[in-house]
């Protein structure tokens, strides 16, 4: 930007410096000339990686040892980790076996649960963003709907199950409805807050450009509120996963929730523990997926 026409016409000696502060680009460190076995950059990256990976590995190891020690006596009511692994080795090794009925591998059980969550959650996301946009954009919609939402959202997810069983007369749609009704409140509320917080500046830009309502919705409103919307979506996916396990316990059929309940009824405690680990892992992965989508969509304005 130094060679501007303006700068050549009436320049003081200071001009190049005048331009400098605005154009300063932090140079990337130059690549190392000599190549040692590990380049210094690779070395620091490995150290950073180690610093983030080693602490959780250490705590997990300590917890496992503690658990092993506490549950190793033959009279212990809960199995030690070594016993869990040996008891459930069949399940770990064959996640996708299928003997018909409910007798399926844990992979299939999780898949069934995830399918229900995916459907209910997708519906909650679409309807939630729509309703949230309405409540955020219109004062009247807010006055009318906000009190209703505030009451409904305090109802525990499972309390909806009997009602939805009565309405749908079938376990499958009822479970999906429970997911939907669980996930929708944080989406609605966060979307509405995001839209209410759109800075006046952006609205002014939209007005000067005479954006029509549709253009305003997808060019200003959605991107401006995206970080808030994704906060809602992230809370929503967590709650969905919490709710599905409980709902499936009551509904039965294939699904990780009923698998746990079934294992309890036939006293397969090791199976329960293995299933819980899988549930935790899947919940964690779901949360990370939504967080990564958030970062990709908002181009870094939302927090991972």
């Amino acid at each position: 930007m130094t060679p501007t026409a303006a700068a050549t016409s009436n320049v003081t000696q200071l001009k190049p410096q005048a331009a400098a502060p605005t154009a300063t680009v932090v140079p990337l460190p130059a690549p190392a000339a000599k190549k040692p076995f590990f380049s210094p950059r690779a070395k620091t990256r490995m150290m950073e990686w180690g610093a983030t990976v080693i602490p959780p590995l250490l705590t997990t190891a300590v917890l496992l040892i503690l658990w092993e020690v506490l549950c190793s006596s033959p009279t212990s009511s809960l199995p030690a980790p070594s016993k869990v692994v040996s008891d459930t080795w069949e399940l770990i090794a064959n996640p996708f076996y299928d003997n018909g009925g409910n007798d399926k591998g844990l992979g299939w059980q999780l898949y069934a649960s995830l399918k229900r969550v995916a459907l209910g959650y997708a519906l909650a996301a679409i309807v939630g963003i729509g309703l949230g946009a309405l409540v955020g954009a219109s004062t009247w919609a807010m006055r009318g709907l906000d009190p209703v939402f505030q009451v409904l959202r305090t109802i525990p997810p499972l309390a909806w199950l009997p009602l939805s069983l009565a309405a749908f007369r079938d376990g499958e749609p009822s479970a999906i409805f429970v997911i939907f009704i669980t996930a929708i409140w944080p989406v609605i509320i966060n979307t509405a807050v995001g839209i209410r917080n759109i800075p006046q500046d952006y609205k002014n830009v939209a007005q000067v450009l005479r954006l029509n309502p549709i253009e305003y919705f997808h060019k200003i409103m959605l991107p401006a509120a995206a970080p808030y919307i994704f906060t809602g979506l992230r809370i929503g996916i967590g709650l969905s996963w919490l709710a599905i396990v409980a709902a499936e316990m009551l509904i039965g059929g294939v699904g990780i929730g009923f698998f746990i309940w079934d294992a309890w009824n036939s006293s397969r405690i090791s199976d329960i523990i293995l299933a819980l680990i899988y549930v935790g892992a899947v919940g964690f992965v779901l949360d990370r997926i939504v967080a990564l989508i958030a970062v990709a969509v908002t181009r870094g304005t939302a927090n991972a």
């Binding site: 500046d201 952006y202 002014n204 830009v205 450009l209 005479r210 401006a224 304005t301």
Partner: peptide, 30 residues
């Protein structure tokens, strides 16, 4: 308001989710 009276706002008011090019092209496309 309208584009025949374009405003440069006190605090720049660029849309942070768009690149510089996209900020300008949003106006041009409209």
């Amino acid at each position: 308001p309208g584009p025949e009276r374009a405003v440069v706002f006190q605090n720049h008011s660029l849309l942070p989710w768009l690149t510089c090019y996209e900020n300008v092209s949003l106006a041009v496309d409209k």
